[in-house]
């Protein structure tokens, strides 16, 4: 069973839910309070009843201070459980705002420690200083459990929709990410080359669009694979939706047995 974690302002949960449901993967909406306390007793849930947690896009709590900061802070209440959850090989994924939450809560970059107490990555305001919604090209640089079904170096088309997606980290962490093959997606042009703005839509360091932890079971990306689950959702004509294999990869991993 996959839990899709929602709170006030998350607003992409239906799209992710529908993607898993279309693939007949058991999936459930869970309000953050049902994990962290604050909901009625009979509504409380245990994260260990789930094999995976997906954090959807949106504007959790409005994202008025810093994208994902409040969601991250609330999620930290169950840091210990999350650490155990990841250690057991269960999966946690974040898309767009969900990626921002995972960096805020410290589950990414996940190099030496499963979870770090201070954020080591920032998804900062786009270089264009505005919200941008459009389709971009991504190159699948390395596989992780979320992208098993894509070919290495394959180029896919996926939409972005964010104002804060500029990937920034320290030189040391960047080197480690590269060394460990943790960089999963990079922004490229049609030919697959790193090409700067507008192909890199936000000014991310080294065109980084998505990364995983060292083990490959925690993953975050800014673009939205759930929005191209079906071919007819693409900007350009396609036979199969480029986002579909993202969900198939997750399901394949889960079926391997936790």
């Amino acid at each position: 069973m996959i839990a899709i974690l929602r709170m006030e302002g998350t607003n992409n949960e239906d799209d992710i839910y529908n993607a898993f449901a279309a693939l007949k993967c058991p999936v459930e909406m869970v309000h953050l309070k049902q994990f962290t306390g604050g909901a009625k007793k009979e509504l409380q849930k245990n994260i260990f009843d789930y094999e995976g947690i997906m954090i959807p896009g949106g504007f959790s709590a409005g994202d008025y201070i810093r994208a994902g900061a409040i969601f991250g802070a609330r999620l930290k209440k169950i840091s210990k459980e999350l650490k155990e959850f990841v250690k057991e090989g269960r999966i946690i994924g974040g898309i767009c705002n969900g990626f921002q939450v995972l960096t805020e809560v410290g589950l990414l970059p996940g190099i030496n420690d499963i979870i770090v107490s201070k954020p080591q990555i920032s998804l900062a305001v786009n270089d264009s200083a505005k919200f941008e919604c459009r389709h971009v090209f991504l190159k699948h640089e390395n596989k992780c459990f979320f992208t098993e079904k894509y070919e290495k170096s394959e180029i896919i088309q996926v939409p972005i929709a964010h104002a804060e997606g500029k990937f920034i980290t320290s030189k040391r962490i960047l080197e480690e990410l590269k060394e460990n093959n943790q960089i999963i997606f990079r922004y490229v042009n049609r030919a697959g080359n790193y090409a700067g703005y507008p192909f890199n839509p936000n000014g991310s360091m080294e065109n980084i669009a998505g990364i995983s932890n060292l083990e490959g079971n925690v993953f975050g990306m800014m673009p939205h694979p759930e929005r191209v689950f079906y071919p007819y959702l693409h900007q350009e004509k396609k036979k199969v939706g480029d986002g579909k294999r993202f969900f198939e990869s997750i399901i394949k991993y889960l079926r391997r047995g936790v």
């Binding site: 799209d15 919200f131 088309q157 759930e226 900007q235």
Partner: peptide, 24 residues
């Protein structure tokens, strides 16, 4: 148009801007 999220909900079939990704 691009400052508005016109894709959320995964139901926008023909887009407000159409054509090739790099030439809309």
């Amino acid at each position: 148009i691009q400052q508005y999220d016109h894709e959320v909900g995964a139901r926008t079939i023909t887009k407000p801007l159409q054509g090739k990704i790099e030439s809309l």
